[in-house]
């Protein structure tokens, strides 16, 4: 199976998800994503940082400099309360959207009546 490009808008969701357990720095987020997706997502590393900055600007993330296990200075990102709420509601929307789309795609020819909502 070839690698999937990340759909527009879903990267933010994935980053928030990554940070929902614990604060991480950029590379940690990248490796977490790679591991969680089993290498099936195609993503330039720099795109992730862009997403992170965008989320920070919107107040979904907070950043602070900290020290890594190997004693290096790294910028750690943490979910804010607003970010957590956003993750919750957007996850729900995404699930409904994915369900709807897949139900349409897999339905019998005349039985398709579900409607896509985002």
């Amino acid at each position: 199976m070839s690698r999937l490009p990340v759909l527009k808008g879903t990267l933010d969701l994935l980053v928030l998800r990554a940070l929902s357990w614990t604060p991480m720095h950029g590379f940690e987020i990248v490796t977490w994503l790679e591991r969680a997706a089993n290498g099936s997502l195609e993503l330039e590393d720099s795109a992730l940082y862009q997403a992170v900055y965008r989320l920070e600007e919107r107040g979904h993330l907070e950043a602070e400099w900290g020290i890594t296990e190997n004693n290096r200075r790294a910028r750690y990102y943490k979910l804010t309360v607003a970010g957590r709420a956003y993750l919750r509601s957007e996850t729900k929307n995404w699930m409904r959207y994915a369900d709807t789309v897949s139900s349409i795609l897999t339905a019998a020819k005349d039985g398709a009546s579900a409607r896509a909502t985002t």
Binding site: E44, D45, S46, A47, Y49, Q50, Y53, R54, E56, E57
Partner: peptide
Amino acid sequence: RFGPLNESRARLLDAARHREQQMQRT
């Protein structure tokens, strides 16, 4: 894997500047 270095750096600096201005306002 990071992406075209100069281009990406410029993009990130841009995003960071934007973020910084917004946060100062807030």
